[in-house]
Structure formats: structure tokens, C-alpha cells
Design a protein around this nucleic acid. Structure first.
Lengths: 218, 218
DNA sequence: CTCTAATAGAGAATACTTTATCGATATGGC
DNA sequence: GCCATATCGATAAAGTATTCTCTATTAGAG
């Protein structure tokens, strides 16, 4: 597993790491010091080899017959994901979804530090949502530049998304966590991660539909 | 593409279908009647062959040199996803995320019909959130059984998730759309779709971290 | 001290997904 | 009516991800 550290992990691997992270935290709370892939795999119902491969990408090395030290493993995952130093962010669109994200304490553990929110609604501007102050969108450029925020959480209605994405890029943002169903057109160096609730619902919905296609009774 | 209808589509395909669906809706609004995979692919920046394969899974057949009728394609996707007849659902956990989902009108278009919400907070019980009435959790069994709701949207704090999942299964729910980070232990016939914001954030976060590992300046 | 069993890590094999290639077919220009 | 071209549908190839197999290592029992 030499030079694996500098290699990029496959996306499925990265998506599983938070799962391991969460389980390891619960182990640490219970005072456990060592853990094996077998043990993790059993609890999370994934393949032991997959756990071993996934963890190897983070650069950790284990000991046969023992496994990995829980604390080291947590740190290794956190470093790999960039979760152990905070990254400043802004939230664009202080609607109900925006408020829900601002209220989700766990993200703070992941290093996400939302400094400010923006909304076009004049009634919201000047107020605070979950302790975060809401500004008018025209303040965005200024604030992003001055505070050097790297991440923008985009939770605006679809129509507003393309425009705001452009503005965010111009402001110097580096990554957009996009909760809108719009595919943003941004330069290649900008990191965009789309959260598609529709995609997720489609999977559920399709499986339910398939079940009834196979078995039309009930 | 014979018998493809009864075949199950790969999950990546299912996850892309809403993307096509959205684009096709915009085409229909603009009065367009026919569309080719090439055209869809260009706009959404995916591979034309992939679009063709994905669409084939829904059972649609196209015509060389022309493509597919937009209306038929929309219907084909909707049928395949089970989006063209409504499915009754309940929402468990009327917190801010729950409220955001209740307020997201688009899900209604996808056939998701949330009839009732449940929350342990006595202050919320009896009120309505976004027009949906909130009940105490002990009413769950009764209501799910009586209204024959198939889907439960689970938006409760992590601690409460395992218990509620068990109760939902006992109530006769068929699918759980799980917004908690907990891996639910349910019988195999229950459909569980996990929405992991942590997984999504991990991808963004890891890419940002990798960027700075490669290029520690800035 | 030796033997056994559990486990990491590497590499091979399998399965799955995406992309490329090719023949068939329908449309519109000539 | 015939030809050129765009596009579909099917199959093949390439690329990824997952699972299996094997060897080396270590802890603990006898």
C-alpha cells in the first residue's frame, strides 16, 4: 500500500468512510482501543476485505491478529477527509433546508464552519438563523473575499441557482455543496458536490415500483 | 432490449433518471416534441451511449435519425420510477429537516404524498407543519395500518432512529427513506434508502483536502 | 518455545459500469 | 426515388469496484 496516501481513493470508498468514522467514534466512547476490519465489517454489514482496502487508502497500517488502534484510525480518516481542521463556509439560501443544515450540529465536527448566510428575502436580511447572520446577496463577493471562505452551501430555489453559482465563482469560492437539482456550469477547478434528493428518492421509488411489478397483488 | 423492462436497472442508472426527467420537462415546456440521446447528453454533460442505455432500461424505444418523443420518454421514466401514481407516506420527526422536506413541493410531482407527521415533542403534537398534522408516535401503528402508507420518511435524531425503525416495521411500512446517519436493522423485505449527507460532504471535503495536499500553498 | 488461530496486506479473479464500435434504419436533400 | 447522414440498438472493449485467495505476521495457549 505504498504511496497510497497520494493516490486518490475511489468515490465509493470516500462515501463509506463516514460510516466507519461514526462506528469508530462509538467504539472510542465505549473505551475500546483496538479494532479489526472483521469487527467493523460485521457491525456495518459490509465485506471485511472492503473495509481493509478502504481504510488502507487513508494511510493507516494495522497489525495482524490485532487490527488498528481506534484513535489512530479515527485520526487517519479525519486527516484523509480533511475533517480535522475547520473550513470556513457560507450558506446561500436561508430557506427551510438552509435552516436545517445550519441547525445540524454534526457538520461542525466535520470541520464545516458556516460563518454567514445569504438570502434575497429582505425580511430575512439582518436577522440570524440558528445563530448565523443573514446578509443580502450583494454582500457575498465582499465577504467571501475578505473571510477567505472556501465552501459555499447552495440551498436556493432552482431558478436562482445558475446565477448564484456564477457569483460564487467570481467571489473566489473553491467548492460548492449543491443542494439544488440544477447542474451548475462552473470552471473545472471548482469542486461541485451535488446532493440529489430526487436521485435518492428515485432509487427507493423504483425499488418499490419493481416490487409491485413483480407482485401486483397487495 | 427485450425483457429489459423486467430487468432491474443498475443503481447509477436509476440515480441519473431524475436528471433526464428534469431536462425533459424543460424541453416539454418549451414545446419540443422529439429529442435524441445526443442532445440530452450534450446538455447534461454525460456520454450519449450512457443516456441511450439508461433510457432503454425504462422500456422506451426510439427511432433512428429522430430520437424519442419527449412526452413518451417522460412517461416511460415516470412509470419506471413509480412516479406516476401517488404513494402515501408519513414523516417521522418534524424537526427542521422534516419541515424542509414537507415544504419541498417537488416531491409531490414524484408521487410522494405525505399524509401525516409524528414527533415526540408534546409541543408539536396537535399542530400542523406545512399543512401536515403532527401526531404523537403512539398513533403511528394505528395510522400506518389504517391508511396503508407504504413509505416512511425518517428525520429524527440518531438516538431515536433504531427504535422508530422497529416500530415502523411492526406498523407494516414497506420502505424507509432514512435521513439519519444510523444503519437501520430491518428485515430484508423492507426497502431502506439512506440519504447520507456525511457521505456527500466527505466527497467534497476529501477533494478539497486532496487539492491542498497536492498544492499546500494558497 | 512451539503451535494455533486471527488478521493484515498484496495480488488475482470476478462482477459491474462506462465507453467504443458497428450494422440497421429512418429522414431530408437532391 | 436515391443518397448522405444522424441516430438507435446491440455487442465488444475498457475501465472500476468488489470479492476471493494466499502469504506473512503476531498474540496467546499449551
Amino acid at each position: 500500500m505504498t504511496e497510497q496516501l497520494s493516490m486518490h481513493a475511489p468515490e465509493p470508498t470516500v462515501r463509506r468512510l463516514p460510516l466507519y468514522h461514526r462506528f469508530l467514534q462509538s467504539l472510542r466512547e465505549r473505551g475500546r482501543e483496538q479494532v479489526s476490519c472483521t469487527h467493523i465489517a460485521e457491525h456495518l454489514n459490509v465485506h471485511p476485505t472492503q473495509v481493509r482496502k478502504d481504510l488502507a487508502f487513508t494511510g493507516i497500517v494495522g497489525r495482524p491478529r490485532v487490527g488498528y488502534p481506534v484513535a489512530d484510525l479515527l485520526e487517519s480518516i479525519e486527516t484523509f477527509l480533511g475533517w480535522n481542521n475547520t473550513t470556513d463556509a457560507i450558506l446561500v439560501g436561508a430557506g427551510s433546508l438552509g435552516a436545517a443544515i445550519l441547525g445540524y450540529e454534526r457538520f461542525r465536527e466535520y470541520g464545516l464552519n458556516i460563518l454567514a448566510a445569504f438570502d434575497t428575502d429582505p425580511a430575512k436580511v439582518g436577522t440570524t438563523v440558528r445563530g448565523v447572520q443573514v446578509f443580502a446577496p450583494d454582500r457575498m463577493y465582499d465577504l467571501v473575499a475578505r473571510l477567505q471562505t472556501k465552501i459555499a452551501v447552495l440551498t436556493v430555489p432552482p431558478d436562482a441557482a445558475p446565477d448564484l453559482a456564477t457569483q460564487l465563482v467570481l467571489s473566489g469560492i473553491e467548492a460548492i455543496w449543491n443542494f439544488t437539482p440544477v447542474r451548475l456550469e462552473v470552471p473545472g477547478e471548482i469542486i461541485v458536490e451535488n446532493v440529489s434528493l430526487a436521485a435518492s428518492f428515485a432509487v427507493l421509488s423504483n425499488r418499490l415500483a419493481a416490487k409491485y411489478r413483480r407482485n401486483p397483488k397487495e
